[in-house]
Design a protein around this nucleic acid. Sequence first.
DNA 1: CCAACGCGTGGGCATATGCTCAAACGCGAT
DNA 2: ATCGCGTTTGAGCATATGCCCACGCGTTGG
Lengths: 317, 317
Amino acid sequence: MAALENEKSRLDDAARAGWLYFIAGHTQDEIAKMLQVSRASAQRLVSLCLAERLITFRLEHPIAACMELASKLKDRFDLVHCEVVPSDPASPHSTAGIAERCANLLDSTLRLETPVIVALGTGRAVRAAVERVTPIERPNHQIVSLVGNISADGSASFFDTVGRLADRTGARHYPMPLPFLMSTEDERNRMNRIEPIAKIQAIAARADLRLIGIGQMDQKAQVHVDGFVSREELFEMMRLGAIGEVTGWAYDAKGRLIKGGTNKRLTSIPPQVPARTTTIAAAIGQAKVPAISAALIGRLVNGLITDEATARAILDR
Amino acid sequence: MAALENEKSRLDDAARAGWLYFIAGHTQDEIAKMLQVSRASAQRLVSLCLAERLITFRLEHPIAACMELASKLKDRFDLVHCEVVPSDPASPHSTAGIAERCANLLDSTLRLETPVIVALGTGRAVRAAVERVTPIERPNHQIVSLVGNISADGSASFFDTVGRLADRTGARHYPMPLPFLMSTEDERNRMNRIEPIAKIQAIAARADLRLIGIGQMDQKAQVHVDGFVSREELFEMMRLGAIGEVTGWAYDAKGRLIKGGTNKRLTSIPPQVPARTTTIAAAIGQAKVPAISAALIGRLVNGLITDEATARAILDR
DNA sequence: CCAACGCGTGGGCATATGCTCAAACGCGAT
DNA sequence: ATCGCGTTTGAGCATATGCCCACGCGTTGG
């Protein structure tokens, strides 16, 4: 049917309009005349172009302050990779900037012709990053999830990061078909031994890149808000000293994994300590500062993508 | 002195403003408040950011029509590389679009770690492209000029493409310290035998990429306008059938190099026929259509970067 | 076959942007 | 300290932009 054709030509026009607007520097009035549409439509095309990310902006200039923060963080915590983007004072929790950089990191990793394995954890920034990855055909890559994708109520839910990234690359993908928490430690251990799960874990262990979020362990902990961990479980972990979590694994202020509590029943693949694989955390926000700091101190991650304000707060501790 | 410091921090602010404007999507009023300046200054910063190319736009969407034209050209003329950018109906001679793509091509070539040799010819698009190359440290690359850089009046003049590109990469560079035309064939041949020149020619012969412009041979021929070739010389070449030129080498409508005239006295490195090295021409404009077509037919180049209108005109012949 | 619906269109208005111009601000020289 | 020159700044205005609304066209479901 013609709908798809239309859709396509509309996107073409949008791209054309965006090109004329941003690159050639024309006004929307001029573009409207060129494309033979009303100015209002031209405006719509330009904004469609933006909404569909047909055009992207890249900042070529390494803002000195950010560069400096990044290099200090790199030194202080012995990181293999660190990026600091300018803060957006109006929305300090927006993932806009870091998602862009994460997407870039994924892009350049996935662009390689030699097969690579990318492991993904949780986090809003990770999700947003995946959405921004440039599609590229790489059927020999592998995308693997570090966390179970079955929520508490049994539905295979929350954002299917692995699937989305696989869509964009044609890579084989391995979501982890497990609940986030099992009911007992035994059950968890049994699960870890069954064939398909063990296989996924083996793949994850060979990952070339791990990209994960960092969650703080307070009343607003994402693992609790999303319903993976009950209020009681959360409080127990806090009593045990939990200050943050990566892929669900709670750790204390020194970045040491908590021995008991939900950590005994977690199905997620635990962090390597210290991280050997390139393991990049993407996290911003004042609330996460202690959690991020601890993860860096404990070497749960060896890379960080954050914003200026967060970077400063981490260094100021 | 502090001037440089100031300059730097001003650019930082510009980058920051650009980021907030284009990426975070704030209005200039908001940015002004954030950066503690007047709105007018915010506007200035944003436009400075644009002017300095601190931020760049990249069109992710392969505009179907352009893609199709590119692929037809590739097939028809057996090209190894072809790109077609949307035309800007308002300024059909603007190098904006193709310069961007050329810069991109240079970027990706220069990004390689293994030493590469890039040879540059003449042309406004080539010059503009060099200005847009992302600086990257590649001291082991080599940049070599295909044309003499001494103008008719003896000054080492016109735009020093090779030097500029070397500035941006730290690569060794080899401008050709010769006049564009010698006064006799003998003299030219003698020049070709002297040591440093022969060496440059040897390097150019091993180039991994040649990027050149195409000039038409009519009253407005660039070689004439720029004063490299006199009116009489130009007319003589036209009598001999010249329709276009690459790095000064005039050729006829079938793309065959003219045997006599200025070609006997040219110091530029002649095109390979047929091109074996990746040799990309960057050229747009109705006036250049016959010249571009002939160069493609004669296989003086095996790649083309042009715009939609020119591409269409070439295919319609 | 028609009604209801969705989607794109163009007009119009409030707001944001680009630009000009005169005033203020260094900054160096006297 | 003062003057003069060149640059930067902010007010104000003309213009461009973003968005809401009512309309029309095509599509879908009854």
